[in-house]
Design a protein around this nucleic acid. Structure first.
Length: 106
DNA sequence: GTTGTGACACATT
DNA sequence: AAATGTGCCACAA
């Protein structure tokens, strides 16, 4: 199964994001294997086949902020989800320096 | 098979 | 500093 779909890799990375942490699209893309997948990552989350396993709300752009198109439940929803994870959210943006996911592989 | 678009990132203007 | 352009990859029409 799991065909070699590019998305599968992205989902794997996103699902591995620890609680109370957020990762950027470029970050996920780089961990997925290619930094240029930043756009593909957004698309992958857009389809979001498993919102229960894929905490897309933990994925933010390089600004630490969510995109305007992010509305799988509303930006407000995203704030609640992140706060539930222990991430402090301010007007839809978080402090990457404080919550950006730090993988050991770095 | 080509064109256009997209939940991005980076460089340049 | 902000806005624009470019690059990259994948998918839909």
């Amino acid at each position: 199964m799991q065909e070699k779909n590019s998305y599968q890799k992205i989902y794997e990375v996103v699902k591995q994001i620890p609680r109370g942490t957020v990762a950027t699209y470029g970050q996920v893309a780089a961990l997925a294997g290619n930094h240029r997948w930043a756009r593909v990552v957004g698309y992958a989350l857009h389809v979001n086949p498993d919102p229960e396993s894929i905490p897309c709300y933990r994925v933010v752009n390089r600004e630490g902020r969510l995109s305007d198109a992010f509305a799988f439940g509303g930006v407000n929803r995203q704030k609640l989800l992140l706060e539930a994870d222990g991430v402090e959210v301010s007007d839809g943006h978080v402090d990457l320096e404080r919550y950006q996911w730090r993988c050991e592989v770095f």
